[in-house]
Each structure stands twice: as C-alpha cells, then as structure tokens.
Design a protein around this nucleic acid. Structure first.
Length: 745
DNA sequence: TTCCTTGTCGCCCGG
DNA sequence: CGACAAGGAA
C-alpha cells in the first residue's frame, strides 16, 4: 500500500502522512506540490482514514482540478466520482444546483461570464441615464465584484461620498435585475453558497459531517470570501472540525489585483488551529544558477513567510541577458536563439516566450512568422467567448429560461428580422412599466396571436415572428438530446445561413459545428446532460481548446498564464522599467512586490536555460518609448549573469539601418502633436496620380474648408475623388471635378 | 438599416 | 498601433 509513498523526500512524506489535523504546506516552485496533494488523498483513502465521499479538494482552475483527478485515478483503482474535486466556483455551483430552492434561485438559473456581466452593466447604465464618462461600466463591474468578494451585499457597503453612493445605486439595480432574470455572476456563486451554508443549519451540518478532509490548492490565491467559505465548511469551532490541508506559496501570489489576500496564509495557523507548518524547499525543476537568481530576487521582498529553494542538481548554465536597441531587434535576437536551441535538439514546445502584457506579443509574433517558426499563443479569445458561439448560446438560454433579457437582446434581431431600435424601445418600455422581463412583455404584446403562427406564415414580421420562433424551438427541443437541440437551433434561428453567406463566415461555421461536437462529448462525460447543465458548463469552463493541437510549437504567453508550467528554456522579454515592473503597479500598495513575485514566477518556470532581454526603445500604443532596464535585473547577482553581445555583421547591419532609424524618426511623435500636412505628405512621399495634374502631398486651398493637403485618391477620370486633410476642417473626400481646388506653393 | 469613417482608449486574468 | 464604439451617409 505504501508503493506510492516511495520516492518522497522527508518533508513530502511528513505532509502526506500527517494525522487528522489542519496543516499549512508552504510549497515552493517545483517542489512537488501537486504530487503531495494527490498522494495525500490516495494515502488517506488507502489507509482507510476516510472514504472517497469524505474528500473535498478545491483548486483555482479547471485544468488543475482535471489533473488532480487523473493523477488520483492513476494511483487508486476507485471511482473518483464520490469525491468532490473542483474549483471554488464549480463546487459552489454544484451545491446551488442541488439546493436551488433553499438558495432562493430559479431551477434554471444561468451563469454570467465577465463579458455578459459587462454587457448587462452597460445596459443598466444607459437606462439609469448615468454619465458613462464619470462612471465607466468597467469600474462599476469592479466595484460590484469586489464588494461581493468581500462578502458585502448592498446593505453592507458604506457609502460616504457621492461617487460611492452612485456606484452603490448601480449595484442595487444590478442585483434587482439579476434576481428578476434569474442570473448569477461568478462572485455571486460563492456569496450565495456562503449565505446558504450560513443560514441553513441543517444543510451546513450535512456537509460538515460529510467532508472530514478538505484540501486546498494554491491557497495563496484565495480571497476573503473563499477563506470564510472554507472555515464554514470545515466546521471550525465545532466539536469535530474537518482537517484542512492547505498548500500554497506566498512568493507566488500574483493575483492580489483580483482580490487574493495573502493574509489568509498568516491567519490560517490561528483560525484553523493548525499545529503544523511544513516547508517543501527542495526544487526538482531548475538548475542551481536559475534558482539562485530567483532566490536573490525574491529576497528583496519584505514580509515573506520565509523559504529558500535548493536543488540537488548542479549549477548549470548562467542566466543570459541581452540588451537590444529596439523591440524589433530584441525579437530578432530571440528568434535566432530559439532556432539555435531547436537545432540543438530542444523541442519547440519545451521553449516558452513570456512577456508581461499581451500587447507585447505582436512584435514577437511578427518575427516568428517571418522566420517560419511555428508557435502557439495562449490566452486569446476562448471558445465560448466567440461571437457566433455567444449567439448560439443565447438562443439556447432562451429555450431553457426565456426571462433572460440579456440573451433576448442579443439575438432578438440577429440574424436581422426587422426588429429595429424603435420596436425594441417600445418593448423595453412595456417591460419597465409592468416590471417584467422582456420576454413576458413580448408575450403580452403579441397575445395569443403568436402561438397560433405555424411555419408557413413566414410573412409575419418582427416581434410576433420572433416569439413564435422561440416557442416553436422550445416545443421542438423538449425531447431531443442535447446535440440535436443545438443543431435544430442553429438551423431554425438562421445562424447557419447567415454565416454561410458572410464573407468571413467559414471559420464561424466551423466553430458552430464544433459547438455540436462539444455538446456531444459533454453528454458522454457529464452526469447531468441537460441543456441547463451544458450552459453552466459553457460559462464555467470557458473552453480551453488547446489540447487538440499536437504540433511541436513554441509557447507564447503572459507570465500570469505561465504559472504552474515548466519548460526547458524560458525567454523573458521586455524587462524594462514601466513595463516590468509595470508602471501601473507604482500606485498600488504592495504593487512593486507583486511585480517581483511575478518575476519570480517567470524565472522559476525554466529548467535549464533562462534568457532575460530588454530593449532601449519600444513602440507601444502607437508611440515610441525609451526605457531603462528593469531593476529586477540589477537585483540578480552579477556572477549568475552572462551578458550577450549583439551578433556581428550580417544581422546587426540589417537591424541597425532598418529599425533603429525607424525608431528615431518616429520618435518625433513623442510630443503628441497631431500630424501636420507636411508629415502626412512626407510619409507617403510625393506621388502624382495619373493624368490629374495633382499629386499626393500637394498643398491646396478650398473656398469653404480653407487650406489643406492631399493625402489620398480613388477612381479616375470624372469619378476621381481625392481625400484632403484640411488644417481646420478635418479630413474630407471631394469629387475632383467639383471641388474647385487651388494649388498652393 | 447597413456600411463605413472617425474618434477614443488601452495591464496582468480565473471562474 | 489596433480594437471597438459611436455617428453620419446611402
């Protein structure tokens, strides 16, 4: 039975075999954290201390949850279904579905993702006639989520100033609408579940009795509400509290900006009466120099719980540093280096190219593309967030739950069926008047009329047509299996034919087809294969469709996205003040320290080779910026670094002439002046267009608009139109024949 | 109503 | 620079 215990180091073994008690495991990067967690679960079950039903394990990502299940299944020949393993949100969702009545939710309640939530708030802001400039929807969204993550309902928020009062007003209205429409956002899943367990003693006792062992991954990322939820579920203070096994690393806490509270780690010991803190400090991933660099860097942070990683491996290679003139040259260097590594036998998929913010990826991608290196960018648009998928899901949501205004607004006129802003306004007024959902208002308006419409009466237009469509779908789909429901909806909504005729529609059609495939595999895997369950799955999972590509490709991602991963070689680009550490971190308390932890996470991703690079100039947001090297480079001892020189001749020749000059000439724009006529002309170079007698860059005068410069033209002969940028009147297209322009100079 | 031009604004990101 | 929203013209 101890087979899976062999190979553990003493600290790991101690953690895995702890007696029935709460414990905090400080697990450094690459110290075998996941192995300890999964082995602990296997050990508890194998030794008969708990049945699978008594286990609850919580993670932050679906990926981590899946990995945990797979690894446990590999160790134990048992059905993992009995255990509750999932994300905080997934587990809360599960409880709310099981007890929707006690939680005061409709049976078919739907989950809002971030995009849905933002759209809803925008809609409300419009209705409230609030000034969007003074109260940006993004900020309102942040306010609401933040309040909920602190466990605060509208009644609990202190609003002393007018700004907060306005925010609070939005929060109130938002809550009312969510209740009426039966929708729930991510933070609400947690808060609602927390309140359910607080208010309902019978339920709470049931779950407290059931889960005797609770295991938490990435504990440093928990927010205050999650912490309280854990306390409640563990029955802290009761006669027999659960044993909570919390694994985390304060040095890798990089989500403070979304509510993670590292104080949870300090308070855990006291609140959960945990007699034991175990440190896992042996690193099995990186060579010595890389670890030494990471340790030296993170030592600059204060208030750490204290931990120093070491390795039994040798020192390995030094950390390489490259100083580039421009961002383009930096990219060229990285590409050359990756080619060399690849030629030496390192798989592309074992090399990561990391950056602080997504905006940096463009230049890098450009160079990779030109060098014909295959690469894969993580963190872009996710499957269930695509426009066409959102539209399809909206129809599905209406079938399951027609009071969902959000979904209705999304597709009431898509594909267009003649319901314009006017009819929509009337509908919204009617709904507001009776305090009902739009759907109810629509039914009211159409009376019994709509229900009698059969398929032949296509002549009917507008609202009645839409109402009939949804009702027909509801009837038709009542007894169909999920994939067929989706197929039916795609056909009858007109989405398929709409995208079939659109010029860029081929990929969208493919995605819609993929949606049916996703539903098919969902039906096979999930216990509950209903439409409502699938919709929840779509919101909670977001769809990480990245495992399907097995081509050997370089990995591009942000440092945040790289957490938890490891690679043979890691390139960390853009190590410049203002970029990394990011300038926005200057205003935040603990901002710099969080940036340093981010850097620590980045460095500890590398097994064998770590490259740090920075550039003296960089084009960002359409402006060339001149940066100084990141302080983080200076925080690494010199004897661990190896400064690389720019490659000689062939390469340097091309980038010095090309990009450096471009960088400096564009540098004039740093004064932020609007482009003058001369500049515009200079960029395009004077180009006469045939037979007209005019040329681009020509200064001209117009009777009404004043003076300006020709910047473009189209057509020919009497149809020729020219575009003139006037000094006062802006840019205009004019028919050359009638414009009566006077040439100047 | 749709298409196209014009203006604004921008960080990191899981569920 | 680009994505996206808002407003004007056909």
């Amino acid at each position: 039975m101890t087979s899976f215990l062999s190979g553990l180091n003493p600290e790991q073994l101690e953690a895995v075999t702890l007696p029935y008690q709460s414990a905090l495991i400080l697990a450094g990067a690459g110290s075998g954290k996941t192995r300890v967690l999964t082995t602990r679960i296997a050990y508890l079950i194998q030794s008969g201390q708990v049945s699978p039903n008594g286990i609850l394990a919580v993670t932050f990502t679906n990926k981590a949850a899946r990995e945990m299940i797979v690894r446990i299944a590999a160790m134990l020949p048992i059905n993992t279904r009995g255990m509750w393993i999932g994300t905080f949100h997934g587990l809360c969702h599960r409880m709310l579905r099981a007890h929707y009545q006690e939680a005061g939710l409709p049976k078919t309640f739907q989950i809002l993702d971030m995009g849905d939530q933002q759209a809803l708030i925008k809609r409300l802001v419009k209705d409230l006639a609030v000034d969007e400039k003074a109260l940006p929807p993004r900020q309102i969204q942040w306010f609401i989520n933040h309040a909920k993550e602190e466990g605060q309902r509208t009644a609990h928020v202190n609003a002393y100033d007018s700004f907060t009062r306005k925010m609070l007003e939005c929060y109130r209205v938002y809550e009312t609408v969510c209740m009426r429409e039966g929708i729930v956002d991510f933070a609400e899943l947690l808060l609602r579940c927390y309140e359910l367990l607080t208010d309902n003693i019978i339920l709470r006792n049931h779950y407290c009795d059931r889960f005797s062992h609770i295991l938490v991954d990435e504990f440093q990322d928990t927010n205050r509400l999650q912490y309280r939820w854990l306390k409640l579920l563990a029955g802290v203070g009761s006669a027999k509290p659960a044993a909570v096994f919390a694994v985390g690393d304060d040095d890798q806490s990089i989500y403070a900006f979304r509510g993670a509270y590292t104080g949870n780690m300090q308070e855990f010991e006291r609140d959960f009466a945990a007699p034991k803190i175990i440190k896992l400090e042996q690193n099995y991933r990186s060579h010595g120099n890389i670890l030494a660099a990471a340790n030296a860097l993170i030592a600059h942070n204060r208030g750490r719980l204290g931990k120093n990683l070491w390795t039994a491996e040798g020192r390995g290679e030094p950390v390489r540093v490259y100083n580039a003139m421009t961002d383009i040259e930096e990219a060229t260097f990285i590409v050359d280096e990756i080619k060399a590594l690849h030629a030496d036998g390192v798989a592309l998929s074992d090399i990561a190219l990391l950056y602080r913010s997504n905006a940096q990826s463009r230049v890098l991608e450009h160079s990779l593309f030109n060098a014909a290196l295959s690469y894969r960018v993580y963190g872009g648009m996710r499957f269930f967030e695509r426009q066409e998928i959102k539209h399809a899901l909206a129809y599905l949501r209406l079938i399951a739950h027609p009071d969902d205004d959000q979904a209705l607004l999304r597709v009431i006129n898509f594909p267009s069926r003649g319901i314009g802003v006017r009819s929509l306004e009337q509908l919204q007024d009617a709904a507001a008047l009776h305090q009902t959902s739009l759907w109810a208002a629509a039914l009211n308006k159409c009376g019994g009329e709509a229900t009698t419409i059969s398929d032949e009466t296509k002549a009917k237009k507008g609202l009645p047509n839409f109402v009939a469509l949804i009702m027909t779908m509801q009837r038709a789909c009542a007894d169909l299996p999920l994939p067929e429901i989706i197929h039916h909806v795609l056909v009858h909504s007109g989405l398929l034919s709409h995208y079939g005729t659109e010029r860029e529609g081929a990929e969208r059609l493919e995605n819609l087809n993929e949606l049916i495939n996703a539903a098919t595999s969902f039906v096979h895997e999930a216990e509950d294969d209903s439409l409502v369950a699938f919709l929840s799955h779509a919101s909670l999972e977001g769809g990480e469709h990245q495992a399907d590509n097995y081509e050997d490709a370089l990995q591009l991602m942000t440092v945040h996205a790289a957490k938890g991963l490891e690679f043979h070689s890691v390139f960390l680009s853009g190590l410049e003040e203002g970029l990394f550490p990011h300038e926005n971190s200057r205003n935040e308390a603990d901002g710099l320290e969080e940036e340093r932890r981010l850097m620590y996470v980045a460095a500890t991703r590398a097994r064998r080779r770590l490259y740090l690079s920075f550039s003296q100039s960089r084009l960002l947001h359409g402006q060339t910026r001149y940066n100084v090297p990141s302080r983080f480079i200076k925080e690494i001892p010199d004897d661990l670094l190896k400064w690389l020189q720019p490659r000689a001749k062939v390469n340097s020749g091309s980038y010095h002439v090309g990009s450096e000059q471009a960088g400096f000439s564009k540098g004039t724009s740093q004064w932020n002046q609007p482009a003058t006529g001369m500049e515009a002309a200079g960029r395009l170079t004077s180009a006469p267009f045939e037979g007209s007698g005019w040329r681009i860059g020509q200064n001209v005068s117009h009777a009404k608009f004043g003076t300006g410069v020709i910047i473009n033209y189209e057509g020919q002969g009497t149809d020729m139109r020219i575009q003139v940028q006037f000094n006062r009147a802006g840019t205009k297209w004019l028919l050359l024949e009638y414009a009566k322009l006077t040439p100047l100079q």
